[in-house]
């Protein structure tokens, strides 16, 4: 039996049939710009024509570090990886990383979107967030 889960926040990503997830962004046809997470208006022009768009699940690593001390308001594990992934359409997204050793990561390495359990609530509900992992091999291991 699978324990109950809840997303970190509504509307940021959705589950797919194969248990993978996909990020939900916003696209403004008038500005031609995509953003994440989806907002009511285009953050580049203020246009109110934002449409929901599923973002690419693959990208490359553009920036990374690890948070070593538990920050206020956060109940997950430390250290944890944190960085920016440039998606295949060019959008750069702030993200949790599954690798918490900065020395095991390299600029430009292929990354893939995964669901990651952040913490477990008192009632046993797992809080799930999006994260990026190296595209091949052990998601918590070292880069090739």
């Amino acid at each position: 039996m699978t324990a109950a889960t809840r997303p970190l926040t509504e509307g940021m990503f959705r589950d797919r049939a194969d248990r993978s997830i996909v990020l939900i962004g916003g696209y403004s046809p008038s500005s031609g710009r995509t953003h994440f997470p989806r907002l009511a208006a285009c953050p580049y022009t203020g246009a109110d024509d934002v449409e929901e768009v599923e973002l690419p699940t693959d990208g490359t690593l553009w920036g990374w570090t690890a948070v070593t001390a538990r920050p206020p308001g956060y109940d997950g594990e430390v250290p944890f990886g944190f960085g920016v992934v440039e998606l295949s359409d060019g959008l750069r997204v702030i993200t949790r990383l599954t690798v918490a050793d900065p020395g095991a990561l390299a600029f430009g390495q292929p990354m893939h979107l995964v669901a990651d359990t952040l913490q477990t609530d008192e009632d046993g509900t797992a809080v799930v967030t999006y994260a990026f992992a190296p595209a091949s091999g052990d998601p918590h291991g070292s880069a090739a």
Partner: peptide, 21 residues
């Protein structure tokens, strides 16, 4: 937003670190 704190996405020195990198 609270979810950014809960998700570990509101850590100011981590943003500084990415900029430094």
């Amino acid at each position: 937003e609270p979810w950014r704190e809960q998700g570990g996405l509101a850590v100011t020195p981590a943003y500084f670190a990415l900029r430094a990198q």
